[in-house]
Design a protein around this nucleic acid. Structure first.
Lengths: 140, 140
DNA sequence: ATGCACCCTGTAGCAACTACAGGGTCAAGG
DNA sequence: CCTTGACCCTGTAGTTGCTACAGGGTGCAT
């Protein structure tokens, strides 16, 4: 087991990825299936290590697996313009911005809710009240 | 069909909730199962409308279904102290703060990546480069 | 030879819905 | 009276990105 390759466990430790996750990436076609040893163990090479590192780093930055698939495809076409790469990154940044704005709005609402709580009984709890708006049934 | 009750569709329109979602809430025990009409249609009352509004508003504020379950339980014990309600809200605010911080860190990284892109070929794309760190295999 | 850490496949579970398929019901128009 | 169309019913499977088994096989040291 000390050949010129990595077992799935070694690859996992090298990229901070759970073994199950690596197999999952293989199953969905994100990471190429490696060769096998005589005992049917997956045998990974340096290329796999690079790919998986790329995938994990991209995941850490919040890219979806679909976006990563696209990025990997582009990364392989080395003489093409990287406009498309730029576009994916910018699109992702827009999403992140939107999420941040949403969370900040939400935080403000939570703040004012919590600020109003005088911690009496539930019956006059401002938080419960704030969560119970008057909804009207819509006509058909 | 013009009785003193709401059909599932009407309840959905009144609370901006998809019909399937309402049935889902019932299945997981979040919204009580209503009575049925002769034709086996669900017949909702004002209580259901109030409950579902509460659930939706809480979801909008990012509470998990488990947190909402706890809030609903508390909301019913009207003479208890609302400390526990306050605690759930504060805990949720901490989570939201953490998410905001994570996203901001992430946004900074995306920014510096995107800023460095000169949009040449993929071969020297700074974005691809930034996504390809050097990982080392760990010893067993 | 036996123990142990590791590997294999396959399947089911998580959150919180969403989307069918294949049927039944209700009210209105012709 | 019959049909049309909007709505309702149940049940199951899909989504995203993993994670957690169960039930077995392999590799290596003692």
């Amino acid at each position: 087991m000390t050949g010129n390759f990595l077992t799935i466990g070694e690859l996992g430790r090298g990229t901070d990825t759970k073994v199950e996750t690596i197999r999952y990436y293989e199953r969905i076609g994100l990471l190429a299936a490696p060769g096998r040893t005589a005992g049917n163990y997956r045998a990974y090479g340096a290329e796999h290590l690079k790919r998986l590192s790329f995938i994990r780093r991209s995941r850490d930055l919040g890219f979806s697996l679909d976006q990563i698939r696209a990025l990997l495809d582009l990364a392989d076409q080395r003489d093409r313009s990287c406009e498309a790469v730029d576009a994916i990154a910018r699109e992702h940044r827009v999403e992140v911005d939107r999420k941040i704005a949403d969370l900040r709005a939400l935080r403000r609402e939570l703040d004012s809710m919590i600020d109003q709580c005088r911690c009496g009984t539930v019956a006059d709890c401002r938080i419960i009240e704030a969560l119970s708006p008057q909804a009207q049934p819509q006509p058909r």
